[in-house]
Amino acid sequence: MTLSFNAETFRDDYTFANSPKAIRAFPFPFERDDYTYTVNIEQHVPGPVQSATEFPIHIDEHYVAEMQDRAITLSQDPLRCQSLPHMMTAEWDLLELLMTSMATHYPETFSLTREGDRWHWINRPLGLDQHFTFGDASTLPQGPMEYITRQCQGDFCLLDQRDDNLWMDAGMVTTQADWSLDFDLGMNFMEWHAPVPLAHDLGVFERALKFLLNLQQGRPVRRLNWTMTINPRLDTSPENYHRWGIDKASVTPENVGDKVHLRVELQALWRLPRSNAIVFSIRCYLIKMDELVTQKKWARRFHRVLASLPQPIADYKGLGRFRDTTVAWLSRHDDGLPTSPGFAPD
C-alpha cells in the first residue's frame, strides 16, 4: 500500500482536511451515548485494517504536513524537545522502536537495514538517507530522540522508572492539548497529572501508576483521550495560549462545522528494553464537525456526550466558550435514534 500525503497547514490559513478514508480511520473515542470517566487502558494489539490502530505506529495522509508543522514549532521554541542527561539510553530505545515499526509496516515509505551496530535508515517522503552507528549519537544530525521524532507523527515522552514512580525526563511535544513539557520536565507521575480534576480523588492515578510500573516488554497498552480545538491547530501549547486562546471566542452558529474540531489522542505506552524506561506516545487526530457528521452514528453520539458532560470536565478541557453553540449545532444532526454498540462508524 503506497501512502499519499496531503499538502495542508495546521496554522495561519488552516487548510488541513480529512479524506473520506481518513474520516473512517478516525479513532472515535466514545463507546456510549453519555460521558463517563474511565481509565480505559487496553492492550495495544492490532485493530481493524485501515484503522488508527492497525499498526503500533500509525502513519497517515497528514504525515508530511505534520512533520513540517513540527519543524516550524521547534524553530520558534526549541524547548519543545528536551532530554535530561540520564535519558540517552532510552532515546536509543525509542529510535529502535520507531524505526523498526515504521519500516516493518510501511516498507514502501521507510526502510531500515541493520548490520550489527551499523544502521541505514531511509525516509522517502522526507527525502532522508542516513547511515549511523547505533549507540553513537555523534553519527546522527540530532540526538536519537529528536532525530526520529522529527520523522514520526505524535508527541513522545520518555518516562524513567525509579523510586516506584515514573519521571517525565525527556520528550518531543509539539502537538499537545495545553500542557508544557518544559514545565513538566523532571516531574513524577503524580506531579504532572496534578492539574487534572476529580481523577485524583477517585484514586485513578494511583491505580494507573501501579499498573504501569509493571508494564512488560512486548505488551504495550493504549487508551484514548479527547478534547476540542478551535481551528485545526496542532500546537495548542500553554506557551502560545496568548495567541490561540482568542480563537475560542470566534465560534458562531454559522461556523461550527468548519471551526470546531474534536481532538482525540491515541496514547500508547511501551516498556523499553535497554533503559527500562517507558515511552508514552500521544498521537493527535483532528476532525472538524462537518467531517464528523458524515458518520450518522458519531453525530448522534457526540451530540449526546457533549450535552451530558459534567461542568468541571468541560472547564478543565476549556470548552466553556463554545460548548453550547456546538451542542445546538450538533442537535440538528441527532434524530434521537439509538446508536449501535462499539466505536466504529456504521
Binding site: 508544557s180 514545565f183 513538566d184 520536565l185 523532571g186 516531574m187 506531579e191 496534578a194 492539574p195 500553554p238
Partner: peptide
C-alpha cells in the same frame, strides 16, 4: 496555576 515544578522551583 495550581501547578508547581520542583526542577524550576516555581508555579506556572
Amino acid at each position: 496555576r495550581d501547578h508547581y515544578s520542583r526542577r524550576l522551583g516555581a508555579f506556572m
